[in-house]
Design a protein around this nucleic acid. Structure first.
Lengths: 206, 206
DNA sequence: TTCTGTGAATAGGTTCACAGCT
DNA sequence: AGCTGTGAACCTATTCACAGAA
């Protein structure tokens, strides 16, 4: 497949949310202009984003809400569910396990790991926190698609090495470090402090 | 000032982190190549990013770690501290208040608000949760720089309207909605489910 | 010699504008 | 007539490559 830009993928995720809302309101068809308005972009952008994957609309009419939603789910790989494990049973980890947005979209947290013996064994949202030492053995039995890393910065690279070694191919990283992984593993890093810094930059440059 | 791209700002934040680490290790000078290696980019990119703001290095030598760090703090507006309020005393809110990365960088959470009477009055990390109704009056007395919105999707736009009306100029939004704000207010949205979807996209397109 | 700073070249992403279905 | 799909034009960001300072 032709290389798709990250921004296109992010916009597709947004469009999908809007389509779901339109569907919930019983709307059956939608124009690129309307999707654009909701997403803060242009109709040409919407059409271009979709055009990378095919042509899903009807000229003069627009798009079928449910068909386009199904198509985007397809594109984003959301036709299946994903097993997700969480490494790090801290505050952020706790918030993420409970986050309803994950399960709604088919991301199932199936295990939580921590290094701290005080946390190991406790129940978190129905899951027993396991010792990180079990990662390799557990994943050998039950492979996982995605790992969310919520450890302190110092521990993250080590954890990631073990995850990669156990066959994990996608990592969502909340630790404030740049992670090194092989080319076939994809990492997305989210850094809260960095987001605030883009705001402070905007505030001080006006 | 010439328009600076978001990606440049994000990279500057990263460079700053690395510089702080280098400083902590007692390293006094650093080359653009070394910064690039750490940040997963190229030395030309590092130099170009910096060049928008001035020339801070010495040819043949590199950059003074502490001087460059100071300069980037300056650029990002981190020479001062920021008052931050949090709206929504839920799981994610709780995680954020405790997040050490914020305070370390001068972002001080000074108040937490919630609509739920059961949460109002409870203590969160030393702060008493206040009723959202007090936002206007509180901000009139003590203006705030940044607001973090962690409400459910339905409540977010309403909260944001009140924040904007109370003079807040920067918003970090965790609610899964597109927010409408006047042109002089800057919004950064973070959406966890969307991040996972970029991963599922990568997983299903290889 | 080493490494920065920066114009020039290239690549990538967005917008324009219009032909072509419905 | 209305709205999509898409090459072409445009604009922005990244990379190249080299002159120039230490």
């Amino acid at each position: 497949m032709r290389k798709i830009s990250e921004s296109t993928v992010r916009r597709l995720s947004l469009y999908l949310r809007f389509l779901e809302q339109f569907a919930a309101h019983g709307q059956t068809t939608i124009s690129s202009a309307e999707l654009a308005r909701r997403g803060g972009t242009t109709s040409a952008q919407v059409r271009k984003d979709l055009s990378f994957f095919g042509s899903f609309g009807k000229r003069g009419l627009g798009y079928s809400v449910t068909e386009l939603a199904a198509k985007i789910r397809d594109i984003l790989g959301l036709r299946r569910t994903y097993r997700v494990i969480l490494v790090g049973a801290g505050r952020i980890g706790g918030a993420l396990v409970q986050y309803p947005g994950f399960r709604q979209r088919g991301f199932h947290v199936t295990a939580i790991y921590d290094k701290d013996p005080h946390k190991v064994g406790s129940r978190w949202n129905g899951l027993v926190v396991r010792d990180v030492r079990h990662i390799e053995a557990d994943l050998a039995k039950e492979p996982t698609d995605i790992a969310i890393v919520v450890t302190p910065a110092e521990a993250a690279q080590d954890v990631v090495d073990r995850l990669v070694h156990s066959g994990v191919k996608a990592i969502l990283n909340f630790a404030p470090v740049q992670l090194a992984v092989p080319a076939d593993v994809v990492v997305k890093s989210v850094n809260m402090a960095l987001e605030l810094e883009t705001l402070s930059f905007s505030l001080s440059n006006r």
